[in-house]
């Protein structure tokens, strides 16, 4: 096969883009290893049969022991490997919270910088078809509260590939939250093995002059739909996808708010103590003079996620909720 040129792309699903990033990094760097439960089989596909295409010793199915294999990944990362571990559903990350929060996030600091912990934890979150309270959560806000962890939330196949490659090459622990409902969305993805999307660089996915909508992960496409319908009402929405919450691209966010004077935040996690709370505090303290009104937050209800489709739909933020929030932000509701 010929070397991919800079501009070559292929239409890939989100899960395939992730698989490609993993495969390329496994091939480029012999210190990269994958670990996780049933990853060779892979429910959503990003790691399916990878062990057949690369050195199979570096693609390890583990027992159901999140705390053991994430802890083992920390140890391996401290001693020269670049482990990429998968938590089958982001909800199960609670089982290995100590290894992430007390160990991975703090080891570099506690050792006075003697070691680095180049670890990636991949974890699919978000709503998908009545997955209920323990298989639907978006837990990214919990980790924003822990200094030492980087957080990626790719909203499309191109970012999924580019961000994952940056995350693997990064020398610090990165939580990489994929979205279950995005796995089969597709786009033209660059095939260049050196293509990356840097951590800490937001994307302005739609330009607009009236309101800034800061939308995370699966909510980016909902925000775009809301923006398109609002355009028919003469409201021009600017949609920002932060792509990484830590590091956060403050300049892009603040520049946009300075232009529009209004901000709506949108996330799938619940409202209280959410991503929107932090973004809102940041913008009100750093762009107060430019704000024309209060920040409006759109998020899930503050409750465990219900199983019933009717209740699930009522709990989750929708395109209508986003449009309503934009109108409210403009004083039109």
């Amino acid at each position: 096969m010929a070397e991919a040129t800079q501009s070559e792309t292929r239409n890939l699903a989100y899960f395939e883009a992730i698989r490609l990033a993993l495969k390329e990094e496994l091939e480029l760097d012999p210190t990269v290893i994958l670990m996780g439960e049933d990853i060779r089989y892979s429910i959503f596909g990003p790691t399916r049969d990878l062990h057949l295409e690369v050195d199979e010793r570096r693609v390890l199915d583990t027992p159901i022991t999140e705390s053991a294999f994430v802890g083992a990944a920390v140890g391996a990362a401290m001693t020269g490997l670049r482990p990429v571990v998968e938590i089958m559903f982001a909800d199960f990350i609670t089982v290995c919270m100590d290894q992430i929060i007390n160990q991975a996030a703090k080891i570099r600091f506690m050792t006075g910088g003697q070691v680095k912990v180049p670890l990636v934890v991949r974890a699919p979150g978000g709503y998908l078809n009545s997955s209920a309270a323990q298989h639907s959560q978006s837990l990214e806000a919990l980790f924003m509260h822990v200094p030492g962890l980087k957080i990626c939330l790719p909203s499309n196949p191109v970012d999924a590939k580019g961000l994952l490659k940056s995350a693997i090459r990064d020398d610090d622990p990165v939580l990489f939250f994929e979205h279950k409902a995005l796995y089969f969305s597709s786009d033209d993805v660059p095939l260049d093995p050196q293509f990356t999307v840097p951590l800490g660089q937001a994307a302005v996915v739609r330009e607009g002059s009236d309101v800034t909508v800061f939308a995370v992960s699966g909510m980016v496409s909902s925000a775009l739909s809301a923006a398109n319908s609002l355009a028919r009402e003469g409201i021009e929405v600017e949609v920002i996808d932060p792509r990484t919450l830590v590091p956060l691209d403050k300049p892009t966010l603040l520049d946009s708010v300075r232009k529009t004077g209004r901000l709506v935040t949108v996330e799938e996690g619940c409202l209280t103590g959410g991503v929107g709370a932090e973004i809102s505090a940041l913008v009100t303290s750093e762009a107060w003079d430019d704000l024309k009104g209060p920040v409006v937050r759109v998020a899930s209800r503050d409750q465990p996620i219900p199983f019933s489709p009717v209740l699930e739909a009522a709990c989750a933020p929708t395109t209508q909720d986003i449009a309503g929030a934009v109108r409210k932000c403009l004083g039109k509701a």
Binding site: A132, F307, S308
Partner: peptide, 10 residues
């Protein structure tokens, strides 16, 4: 039994 909040897994 769980008023539709739990479903199969709960």
């Amino acid at each position: 039994y769980c008023r539709g909040r739990g479903g199969s897994m709960h």
